[in-house]
Design a protein around this nucleic acid. Structure first.
Lengths: 252, 252
DNA sequence: ATAATAGTGTCTATAAGACAATATCAC
DNA sequence: GTGATATTGTCTTATAGACACTATTAT
C-alpha cells in the first residue's frame, strides 16, 4: 500500500501502474560497443534474482523532478558521470512484463566516452559490468536479461544503429578529442561494417561538425590530426544515408 | 486512495505517478493537415475545464493490456476506426504537468485517411473537432491546449515532418487508393513547402512502394492514374532526404 | 628501406532539383 | 482550338562508393 494516503486531488479511479526508468548506457571499449549491466539482488523474493539487467529502478516522485531527471540519476549512480548524450527511446507498459503487476518502463539511451569512467573500466561496483553488444563477437552479451530488458536493449541498439546511418550520433561515444580514424572506427563498431575512408572523411569534414586542433595523436606510426566536436553543435543530420537501405518495420 | 488494497507483490515503497495516454490523431482535410481535439468537461473541479485537449486519459490496467492497447482504445472511441499507422512519440513525466500531481503521459501519433471517418468530417460527438495544424493557416489551431498538450502536439508534428523528409510516412494520411498528385499534395501539406513534381514521382516509383491500378481518377481534366500502397510494405526509408538540412537539437 | 597508419586524387554511380516539353481530358 | 492537370525528357548538381596513390612516422 502507499506510504501516505493520497490527497483528494491525487485520488484517481484507477489503480496506477508501477513506473520505472531503465537506462541503456553504451560506450566504446576495446574497439567494441559495450553496454553497462547490473546484477540483480540474489534474494529469492526479488524478481529475477541474480540475473543481469539494465540499470534502472522505480521512479521516485519525491526525488525525481521528471523522467529524464530520474534517468540522469540512475546514470550518475552507476557511472559517476553525466552523459554527453541522453535520449528517450520509448516506453514499454503492459500487464505481464513485471511479475509484480502492470508496469511501465521508460527507457533512455546514454552514450558516453569510456575515458570519462573510472580507471578500471568504469565499473566501480562489483555487480556492475560492461558487456559487448555484438551479435557475432567472441564474448557475447550476458545471458538473457531480467524482465523484458533484452527487447529494450535491442530497441536502444537499433536506434543507435539507425541514426548512425544518417546522423553524427556515434561521435558521443568518443572523448572530447579524437582523430578521424578513431571516429571512423566508432561508426564501424556501431554499424558492424567497414566504411570507405575517403567518403567518410569527406562526409564528416563537409558537415562542419568538428574542428581541427593544433595537436596530433602521437603513435608509433604517422601522427594523426586531432579534432573536437564544434562547440554548440548538436546532432547533425546528413543529407544522405550511408548506404541505400530500403524498407523497415511498419511502425518506427 | 486505491480502490482495492494492493497485494504484497504489488506493494512498492514509492507513491506511483499517474499514468495517462494521449493520442495525436492527424489526417488531411481540405488540403491541410488537421488534428483531432476534444473539449474538456466544464465542471470547475476538473483540471482545465472547457479547454481543448488531445484525446486521451488515464491508463486502465483492468482493460488495457498495454500502453499501445490503451492508445488504440482512445483512438477508436473518438474516431470509430483503427488507424493504419500508430507510433509512440514519447513520454512526458514530471511533477508539474498535471495539477493532480506527478504524472506521466505516453503520447502516440495516429495517421488516418479522412475518408475513413464518418460523413460529417469524422467528429460524431459535439465536443470533438478537427483543427488545422498550420502555423500560418487562415484558421489557426485552437487556443492554448490543456495541460502541456501544446508541446506534445508540437513533438508529434515535428516527428511527422521529420520523417516526411526521408520516409514514406505521409502516405498513411491517404485513403487506400490515390493518385501521385494527391500523394505529392499530402507531402507538401505536411512539409509546408512545394516539392518538385518530377523528382517526387521518380522518388516514389523507384522505391516500389506503390502499385499501379487499372483505374483512373476521373476529374474534369486529364484523368490521373490511381495507385495503392503495395501490400505488406511498411514504412519506406529513402536513401536521401528531400532537402539538404543541417543541424537539429541536441537530443532527437 | 619497410611496415603501418594518415591522408588525398579522381573517377563512377545514384538520386534530387530545375525546368521545359508533351499528353489527355472537358469544354 | 483553350485551359487545366497529368506525365515525361533531360540537364545539372551534390555526395557516396571504389580504389589507387602519396605522406609521415618508427624501426
Amino acid at each position: 500500500m502507499p506510504r501516505k494516503p493520497l490527497s483528494p486531488a491525487e485520488s484517481t479511479p484507477f489503480p496506477r501502474p508501477l513506473s520505472t526508468v531503465d537506462v541503456i548506457i553504451l560506450t566504446l571499449l576495446d574497439d567494441a560497443l559495450q553496454v553497462l549491466l547490473v546484477q540483480r539482488d540474489s534474494a529469492p523474493d526479488e524478481p529475477f534474482p541474480g540475473q543481469w539487467a539494465l540499470p534502472g529502478g522505480i521512479v521516485d516522485t519525491a526525488r525525481d523532478l521528471s523522467l529524464e531527471d530520474c534517468a540522469r540519476r540512475k546514470l550518475k549512480e552507476k557511472t559517476g558521470v553525466d552523459a554527453p548524450y541522453l535520449e528517450q527511446i520509448g516506453s514499454w507498459g503492459d500487464a505481464s512484463r513485471d511479475p509484480r503487476g502492470w508496469s511501465t518502463t521508460h527507457v533512455y539511451l546514454a552514450l558516453l566516452p569510456a575515458a570519462s569512467l573510472h580507471p578500471t573500466r568504469g565499473g566501480n561496483v562489483s555487480d556492475v559490468a560492461w558487456f559487448p553488444v555484438h551479435g557475432g563477437g567472441s564474448n557475447p552479451v550476458a545471458p538473457p536479461l531480467a524482465f523484458d530488458h533484452d527487447r529494450l536493449l535491442a530497441a536502444g541498439i537499433a536506434r543507435l544503429r539507425g541514426k548512425a546511418e544518417y546522423t553524427s550520433l556515434p561521435i558521443y561515444l568518443l572523448p572530447p578529442t579524437f582523430t578521424l580514424s578513431e571516429l571512423q572506427q566508432v561508426f564501424q563498431a556501431v554499424l558492424g561494417r567497414p566504411l570507405e575512408k575517403k567518403a567518410f572523411r569527406t562526409r564528416i569534414l563537409a558537415a562542419g561538425l568538428v574542428e581541427e586542433l593544433d595537436a596530433m595523436r602521437e603513435t608509433s606510426r604517422r601522427p594523426a590530426r586531432l579534432y573536437r566536436r564544434r562547440a554548440g553543435q548538436g546532432l547533425h543530420y546528413f543529407p544522405r544515408a550511408l548506404e541505400p537501405h530500403s524498407v523497415a518495420s511498419a511502425a518506427d
